[in-house]
Amino acid sequence: MKQFFKQNHKTDNSIRQMLRKRKSPMLITGIVMTSIVLLFVLIGLIVTPYDSEAMDATSKLAGVSWKHLMGCDNFGRDILSRVMKGSATTLFIAMGTVLIGIAFGIVIGAIAGYFGGLADEVLMRMNDAALAFPSILLALVLISLFGTGRYNIILALGIAFVPSFARIVRSEFIKQREMDYIRQAELIGVHPFRIMFVHMLPNSARVLVSSLLIGFNNAVLAEAGLSFLGIGVQPPDASLGRMLSEAQAYLFSRPGYALCVGGTLIFIVLGFSFLGEGISEDAKG
């Protein structure tokens, strides 16, 4: 009996089997870096060295010391505490953005990809129109409609991210639509929505996870960009983009400020990039 159960790695697609396989160095680096980021943010949510909003006039623009590991900003606020809080804000916004983007992206992409025909034409033409704007520009327009503040940013960025997710999901569903197991499901009379979300969606999990991570990175950068331009998170809330724009004024007198904030941003983005790359690399090999 045993010899009949042959192992065929090409066709196995589930996340569970993926986790069992040996991991690439890139994936491991990604996992380590993201874990550090998440730990850093989690600790920051519970406790920070100083109150992130407490100003101390005596240590304005103080340099790196044992008392202030990253120094202090122009109001004498501890930068490390603010980076911890700011990272949390940035990650929260990025997460919300990706969730909105992927939720609507899945629904639109699934309907367009699975049904094809007129539904596909209409949805994808609308999608193309939205994609024609750079997503940051689209977000700018939306923010000018909704107003600033963290929830409005999530909404604006989320909407701006929908088209690219919809595109990915659509192409995944088109690939699967002609597969015999989908025809089999159609044949036994499974409702189209059950086919889309129960039969097809789990097969796209891998692609979705890695595009989710890429989207997450773009969202981190987009939030930083918006806050840098002053239309994102409003003071005194900390966010990495906001802090970067504040650090800009002291780029030459206190380069450490910008370096600490920028370094954290780079570390976060790099970690998620490695994770995303590692997962799609693992999926191929």
Partner: peptide, 29 residues
């Protein structure tokens, strides 16, 4: 059509390698 499909008329396809959903258990399918 859906009420007849799969209940009164069923079909088996040519390619055994692609006829089963790779992420679902045999029993489920």
């Amino acid at each position: 059509l859906r009420s007849i499909q799969g209940k009164d008329i069923t079909m088996v396809f040519q390619e055994p390698m692609t006829s089963l959903n790779p992420v679902k258990k045999i029993g489920w399918q």
